[in-house]
Amino acid sequence: AGILSAHHFPPALVGPVTVVTSLMDMSIGVLIAIRRTAAFGLFAGIVASLGYMAGSAILTPDLWIEPLGALVKTGPAIVLMLVALLMLDNR
Rank of each mutant, 00 (worst) to 15 (best):
A70S: 13
T37D: 07
I32R: 11
D62H: 14
I34C: 06
M26D: 04
G69T: 02
F43Y: 08
S27G: 15
L68A: 13
V47N: 04
I46V: 10
A44D: 00
A33W: 06
T21R: 05
M26L: 14
L59Y: 06
L23M: 11
P67F: 08
L68M: 11
F43C: 04
T60A: 15
V20H: 02
I28M: 02
P61A: 14
I32T: 06
A33M: 08
A57P: 01
I65C: 01
A39L: 10
L63P: 01
L63Q: 07
L23T: 11
M24C: 13
A57R: 15
A39R: 15
S22A: 12
L68V: 06
D25V: 08
I34T: 09
I32C: 14
M24Q: 08
V19G: 04
R35E: 08
A70F: 15
L31A: 12
L59A: 14
G29V: 01
G45Q: 00
V20W: 04
P61Y: 14
I34N: 10
P67C: 07
G45F: 01
M53N: 03
L50I: 06
D62V: 08
M26K: 06
G41I: 03
I58S: 13
W64C: 04
I32F: 06
V72S: 14
I34G: 00
V20I: 15
R35I: 02
M24K: 02
A38T: 11
I28D: 03
V20Q: 03
A33F: 06
G41K: 08
L63F: 12
S49W: 00
F43V: 07
E66T: 05
T21Y: 05
M26H: 09
T21A: 09
L59K: 14
G69C: 12
E66S: 13
P61Q: 07
S27Y: 05
I28A: 03
I32G: 04
M53W: 08
A38P: 07
L31R: 04
M53Q: 09
I58K: 08
P67N: 02
I32N: 11
A70T: 12
A48N: 08
L31W: 13
T60G: 03
L71C: 11
A54E: 01
Y52A: 08
V20M: 02
F40E: 02
I34P: 04
S56I: 12
G45W: 02
I65S: 15
V72Y: 02
S56W: 05
G41T: 04
I46M: 11
L50M: 09
S22Q: 07
S49R: 00
S27C: 10
